[in-house]
Design a protein around this nucleic acid. Structure first.
Lengths: 205, 205
DNA sequence: CACAGTAGTGGCAGTCACTGCCAAATGACA
DNA sequence: TGTCATTTGGCAGTGACTGCCACTACTGTG
């Protein structure tokens, strides 16, 4: 937060104010019945400004997915070129798990609020999943490119990504009422290990 | 179509008129720039009536997913109780593949139009994926119930469904420019077999 | 410290998806 | 044919989202 100019610090502050205001309002009064005007009002900006920070009401909730996508794509790119694709993907997911473990208390709280909100709002959960699939699509592109494969003709990169991301998806919804974030991360790690055990060695070649 | 009363036949006709009008308009002028008013006008009904047939603009495109979900859930329920869950799920998917092979030429044409539309409209593809995930959720419930497991605590049903549905997802997007529907079905079957080969025997127990 | 230049903000008017409500029309059935 | 249930159309309203323009506030330079 320090090191940037005043302008950028202000922007970041407004972004967080919007997110926090929205999360609290959504959780208290429901997502559908809360209007953008109320969120903007509660964060002391005009409704018009809201849409300069988030492309839609949904997008406000999906910033977590934006960050996750970035982390995993970077982690994937950093893996050695010759590594089998499934191993690279598991490393990418574990990089995300580590990022979650290292998150600030504020971000952890926001994450848990988002999770509660997704549980309470089916339409939002749909959006979140759709966003996750978009991430998978980009991961498939990257995995395929690393092996010089054409994802439009070869199902393998799709399966590699799908298998690994299944553990993330499970972990995101499966412990019905998680005590805390470490519990969620632990569940994801467990599921990932189950996936690894379930596959034949060398299946991804 | 025969055997129902005039009223129901008329309703079915209107439904198809709306779907066909919408698909053609969307493909020609783009999904976003086509309004409900235009679709309704082209199908000779009032805009208000449109929303008595479809809950949203998106839903118009997702009737295929509704039918698919029904087919797979029924097929799953019809499997013998003691069968290992992964085997049951592969049978459920293959039931859907057979249904697709037996579709009428009109429905095949609609399906291919939907596919082209999804390719051209990222936002619609997202909706379709979200809808597919909803189907997966119901499949997970069913798979878990058949084994007396609690899906909120056990990742296995999630993985079973996820692994099988991966082949469907791949087949739905993967052959970049499929000649026809049999080509798509064939690709799904191939991918499903690849999934089956990739897993250790007895992993799902 | 003043002075452009640029980026962020607010307000306004407009489009469009979607809904509730009531009145008119139309198939169903005795 | 007359009555009932269902479907339809029109209308007014809400709320998400956008383009536009003027205004304000930070930024880097002399």
């Amino acid at each position: 937060m320090t090191g940037m100019g005043l302008r950028e610090r202000k922007k970041e502050k407004t972004r967080l104010a919007l997110v926090d205001a929205a999360l609290d309002l959504f959780l208290e009064h429901g997502y559908d019945t809360t209007t953008i005007d109320q969120v903007a009002g509660s964060a002391d900006v005009s409704p018009r400004t809201f849409f300069r920070y988030f492309t839609s009401k949904d997008h406000l909730i999906l910033w977590f997915h934006d960050q996750m996508e970035e982390t995993m794509l970077e982690a994937l790119a950093a893996r050695p070129a010759g590594e089998p694709p499934f191993a690279s993907m598991t490393h990418a997911l574990r990089a995300q798990l580590r990022t979650m473990e290292e998150a600030t208390p504020e971000d952890v709280e926001r994450f848990l609020k988002v999770r509660r909100l997704l549980d309470a709002t089916p339409h939002l959960a749909s959006s979140a999943y759709a966003r996750a699939i978009e991430t998978e699509r980009r991961l498939v592109e990257t995995v395929a490119a690393r092996r010089g494969l054409d994802p439009a003709d070869n199902p393998l990169p799709h399966l590699v990504v799908s298998f690994v991301m299944a553990s993330l998806r499970v972990g995101l919804t499966c412990p019905a009422d998680p005590a805390d974030l470490p519990e969620i991360v632990r569940r994801m790690e467990e599921t990932l290990q189950l996936v690894e055990r379930s596959l034949r060695p060398g299946w991804d070649s």
